[in-house]
Design a protein around this nucleic acid. Structure first.
Lengths: 146, 146
DNA sequence: CCTTGACCTCAAGCTGGCTTGAAGTTGCAA
DNA sequence: TTGCAACTTCAAGCCAGCTTGAGGTCAAGG
């Protein structure tokens, strides 16, 4: 069992962040010693995973829905599959972005964004990003023409 | 040349977002017709790239520093290389995350986060994420969690 | 020429994800 | 027993990244 300062040190999360996560149900303390929270060792894995999922761009709410509340491990295959696919899409976008950046580093074109080679590298990602313009559902929320 | 509603439709960005991006110097309008902004076609590539970079987790400020203000294409190799490397790290993390999620889908362990196979899949990413916390202290810390 | 509505500006508001601060409680060492 | 550092709660504050609203302007169609 860890107290909050130990968990903080081991995980790299501030104590306030850990309390906040507990408040919103992302992690759970196993009990108290007096007032003080006690955490099980498994929580370390959990916060690492949370951190990773944040890197992937998921909101805390999405993360909660995906990895569930601790102690209630009924992870839904469909949700998991959807998240895995979403991550996969992101991997492809980031790969294009990385390659694009690496090309630009060595590109002598005046305006890199208009360099044909750059555009070819980014093609899939860019056109996908643009494709959301109609029937969009995700991050850039429905665009009312005002 | 596009007006803001055309750019909005084509890019999937709301008009207010486009105005906001212009305000903070991320994009530029080529001029006005009366009051109304006119954008060059290249801006479409730019906003797509911005969107991609956001997916990669960069702040608008970082994006601005990396891709520069339009018309001033002095992209710095070192900055670009650093960003490309950062993206590369993220790709590796996301790959671990995706594989982890796909494993959990088919894993029958009671608590997935403690499943050894899951942990092995995520190992590199998880330990990296944890590395921010120096655990060089006198007291014996039981970081192992399985 | 007049209307219309798509644009404009500027300030204020909102959400997510925390941090900070004030004030209270407690385990533990002396 | 006392002292105090380390915790606690709860409310308020902060930043990024937008959106919303009120009120103004203007170019084009009737």
């Amino acid at each position: 069992m860890l107290d909050i300062s130990e968990l903080s040190r081991v995980s790299g999360f501030s104590a306030s962040k850990l309390r906040y996560y507990e408040e919103i149900g992302l992690i759970r303390s196993a009990g108290r010693r007096g007032l003080k929270r006690l955490y099980e060792n498994e929580v370390i894995n959990r916060v690492s995973l949370i951190s990773l999922a944040q890197t992937a761009g998921f909101s805390l709410l999405e993360i909660k829905e995906t990895i569930g509340t601790e102690g209630r491990p009924d992870l839904d295959r469909i949700t998991l599959a959807a998240k895995a696919d979403a991550v996969d899409v992101k991997i492809k976008e980031l790969t294009a972005l990385r390659n694009g950046l690496r090309h630009v580093m060595n590109c002598t074109a005046a305006n890199h964004l208009d360099c044909p080679r750059f555009q070819r590298i980014m093609h899939v990602a860019l056109t996908k990003k643009r494709a959301g313009a109609k029937s969009r559902k995700k991050k850039t929320i429905n665009v009312r023409s005002d």
